[in-house]
Design a protein around this nucleic acid. Structure first.
Lengths: 247, 247
DNA sequence: CGGCTGATTGATCCCGGTCAAATGAGGTGG
DNA sequence: CCACCTCATTTGACCGGGATCAATCAGCCG
């Protein structure tokens, strides 16, 4: 018995995600689980967990629930620059830059572990596989961010939305959060619009187009991808940037 | 006498940029200069220095010249996802992800230093300030990438172009590459269009608008910002994301 | 001088934005 | 159980920012 089942299952997404990037040592996994168990927190929907300009003194490891990173312009225009999914971190190593340059808000109730900077540094100092896995996760975020640039800059509305759905699906896969051809998509259409740089109205029409062409189902916050290959092809999606296959 | 003047001046942008992120130790600076001196390379304009899918086995440190990171869609649409300016690296630590998820091309003749992975790891193992400075540089790139997302997703053409110009100006400042109110802008309008997600035609008209409203001059690859504050305000530019001031 | 690349202009079109209103789906309190 | 409120989704009508297509112009080089 390493720990109680409940806590073990909560740490699973993190371990699976990091393991997909770097093979973790058993000791690394154990101390990670221990650290997570000590810093568990809950937040409700629609809360900022951290805001642009805030100092960064800790790392958050998301155990369940969705968040988004966003920036707003003075006049209220908002862009979601990325989602934060279960098993991902809010800025491992982010303290190196001292200050947040964007905000992070919950889109659902969220369970996460807070790890103070000193604690985190001790954790990674003691296990190289953990340190590298967290770095890989940080680099992966950068790769995803670049893909978002081409999504926002060069894809048409239908391609954009399709691409976002493909990406989410493939990001949820390694953490075991897809169920056959379905996954949870616990966000409003306003959120999807802000993530794709579209207006809500047009996003809604685009979703309807995807539905009526038989590519997806989307009801009650559940996304079903009826024909994944067709959706990927409509999105001009190619998964290499997700670096899913460990070298 | 630490080294010859010529080589010393070439390494200056790198040292200035890293120093702006983390105070470098004297030994760190010395070994960085030594490493750079050993790996100098030259490339002409319009060459890919590395392509999507290529394995990553080394780090490139740009000493002079401009490059761009870009991705293309199957049908030829291209998005420049970022520029690489003098003093920046092509993916310090990039080898952790093994494979490039985008391509990097020169926009001008470029002088850079190649540092093999083992060499780079030795360099940072031996000096913590260097290791952290390179990590900060990597995180900073992520911050810039996020700002590009809001630029592409939520700003109008005029704001977008103005914002890009502000950003370039402020990124060149800490490496000493601005001269009063001017800096070099050695790229074609096609490049600027691909960076802002606009068509060349519309980019051209947008530049004319910026010129005719007296905000900028742009002739012979030299950008002069006539009224920086007005340009920033037209761009809704706020510089925090560049993390210019060391904590 | 011809050929090439990049900048500029003009005319037209359409993708996606904006505005406004209707519909639906919880949630709450009387 | 229903009236009411709020928030999300959907629909319709119209508009406009920026794309597209097609020339023309300006340097530059061999």
């Amino acid at each position: 018995m390493r720990h109680t089942p409940v806590e073990g299952s909560l740490a699973q997404p993190v371990i699976r995600r990091l393991n997909a990037l770097r093979r973790l040592s058993d000791e690394g996994v154990a101390s990670l689980e221990r650290t997570i168990r000590e810093g568990m927190q809950h937040v409700g929907t629609g809360e900022d967990v951290i805001r642009e300009g805030d100092p960064v003194n800790s790392v958050r490891i998301i155990l369940s629930g969705w968040l988004c990173r966003y920036k707003t312009l003075e006049d209220g225009r908002r862009q979601i620059v990325n989602f934060v999914l279960p098993g991902e971190t809010c800025d491992a190593y982010g303290y190196l830059l001292s200050v947040m340059d964007h905000s992070i808000a919950t889109l659902t109730p969220v369970v996460y572990a807070t790890v103070k900077r000193a604690q985190f540094e001790a954790l990674i100092a003691q296990d190289r596989s953990l340190a590298e896995a967290f770095w890989c996760e940080t680099l992966l975020k950068g790769a995803i961010q670049r893909e978002w640039a081409i999504n926002l800059g060069r894809r048409l509305a239908l391609e954009r939305v399709a691409h976002l759905l493909c990406e989410i699906f493939e990001r949820l896969r390694p953490v075991g959060l897809i169920d056959g051809t379905s996954c949870s998509l616990p966000v409003t259409q306003t959120d999807l619009a802000d993530a794709t740089g579209l207006s809500v109205v047009h996003l809604n029409r685009t979703l309807q187009e995807l539905r009526s062409s038989g590519l997806i189902l989307l009801r009650e916050r559940t996304l079903t991808i009826i024909h994944l290959e067709a959706l990927k092809s409509a999105a001009l999606f190619s998964p290499h940037y997700l670096h899913l296959y460990r070298a």
